[in-house]
Amino acid sequence: MSLIIEVNHLSKKFGDTLAVNDLSFTVNQGDIYGFLGQNGAGKSTTIRMLLTLIHPTAGNIKLFGKDLSANRSAILQQVGAVIEKPDLYKYLSAYDNLSIFAKMSGTKVTRHLLMQQLHMVGLEDRAKDTVRTFSQGMKQRLGIAVALVHNPALIILDEPTNGLDPQGIADIRNLILRLSREMGKTVLISSHLLSEIELIATRMIILHKGKKMVEGNVATLLDPAHTLIEIETLDNAAAKQLLLESEWAAFVQPNNQLQLMMDKIKVPRLINFLVSGGVQLLSVNSSHSLENYFLSLTTQSGNVDAFAN
């Protein structure tokens, strides 16, 4: 499996602020790669560096096995992107917008191709209307059509579901799955809707304060063997102390809550241990959702930053 994105020791400084700190990751061909992190984690800065909008302070980026800065034009011909808001020329029609960006990407533009793209995102009937008259969801769909019109091998979607209603979100999800499974495209997607990423991503990275927290297969990272168990007792501190002094100490999460990361199958034994230890249990919740996982990682250091939107 060939590497589509290879990022090595990438850093970006804005003044004294280190927005991206020695970041390395890889994206394989055919991956739907989830790009996760809180606001200000460095997701957008990294994506902008992948698209040459921002110049890295250090490190290098290879796309399709080639150095990005040396082969910018050739590489960007194979990349389609929606970056944050899908802003387009409001005074131009959907058709004209699509046509302009297709030409800029070096694609031979035919009416058939453009109408096909608009059909794909359900905007065929609005082809001649100016973007000014579009709803946020329609703009988002047109943005995706623009990203795909030149048939790129790598698609970078920065918050593609922003401002979409549940149906719109589902449509985008299905589109991404189709692009990956049927057309073999590689997709890098950042989103704050972790449940959406969980549904579609094959691999992911979690960034925190510009640094990589974890990277790997979603299936592995969200393995039942790594289920997050959350316990509520009458005296959490005493219970935690009991656990830390026992064989369970290795599974206790280093945060203020009473959480353990362990195989779900051991939960009955854990309950027995606690009860026999005189702990008065109120509830035991097990979860291996991405959101929990994400929170468990990003709040480890007592970080309580507001999460995206």
Partner: peptide
Amino acid sequence: NMGTLRLLISKPIS
């Protein structure tokens, strides 16, 4: 201002 600059720069034009 329109937000199209980032899209332009991400196209294969120097």
